[in-house]
Amino acid sequence: MVKALNEDLVRLDLRGLRCPLPVLRIRKALRGMEPGSTLIAFCDDPLAAVDVPHFVRTTGDELIEIVDGPARAFRIRRAAPARPEPGSRAASS
């Protein structure tokens, strides 16, 4: 369940979902967010402790905080889209 607390903060309840669903739902939520916005995802899947930080590193987004509890909370800040290198195929499109 996705709940927008305000324009810059989204809460995502992923309790009860197992790998790979938490990361897939986080990816989908982040894609729809503006750069600088924050996502808080609550996961009780033990593998999320490894999968979510790894996923965030690969996207360039920022993992701000992990809070342990009955459901681990991941606070993630959406990064600005990567700029294409000058002269790259994407820059010339």
Rank of each mutant, 00 (worst) to 15 (best):
D68G: 03
L39R: 03
A90P: 07
P53S: 06
K28I: 06
I26W: 00
S93E: 13
V50M: 11
I76H: 05
P84K: 10
G60P: 07
G60R: 06
S93G: 14
D13R: 11
D51K: 00
D13A: 14
A41M: 07
G87S: 09
P81C: 10
E85F: 14
A29K: 08
R27C: 00
L17G: 02
V2W: 00
A29N: 07
V23S: 08
F74H: 08
L21A: 15
V23H: 00
V52R: 02
P53Y: 11
R83E: 15
I64Y: 02
I40E: 15
E85Y: 12
N6L: 04
I26P: 00
D45H: 02
A91S: 14
V50I: 14
R27H: 09
A29S: 11
L17Q: 10
E65R: 11
R89F: 08
F55G: 01
D51E: 12
T38I: 15
P22T: 13
R75M: 14
S93T: 15
F55T: 00
A29F: 06
T38V: 15
R78W: 10
F55R: 01
L14M: 11
N6K: 10
P22Y: 08
V10P: 00
D45M: 01
P53N: 06
R75W: 11
L17W: 09
G60D: 05
P35H: 08
D13K: 11
F74A: 09
V2C: 01
K3R: 15
A82M: 07
T58K: 13
R57Y: 05
T38W: 02
M1W: 03
I26E: 05
S92I: 04
P81K: 06
P22H: 08
F74R: 00
G87F: 08
L47R: 05
R83I: 11
N6H: 12
R27M: 03
R25F: 09
R75A: 15
R78L: 05
V2M: 11
R72D: 01
R57M: 10
I76V: 14
R27F: 00
A90H: 10
L24R: 07
A90L: 14
I26G: 03
L24Y: 05
I66D: 01
K3Y: 13
R57K: 14
G60F: 03
S37P: 03
P84V: 07
L47M: 10
I26A: 03
D45K: 04
P70W: 03
A49Q: 09
I40A: 13
A79C: 02
C19I: 06
A41W: 11
L30A: 05
R89L: 10
L24S: 07
R31E: 15
I76F: 13
D44V: 07
V52P: 06
P84I: 12
M1N: 14
E34Q: 13
A4V: 09
C19M: 12
L24A: 04
F74L: 08
R72Y: 03
T59H: 01
G32H: 04
S92V: 12
I64M: 11
R78F: 04
R72I: 10
G16C: 08
R25G: 02
R89H: 06
G32V: 12
I64F: 04
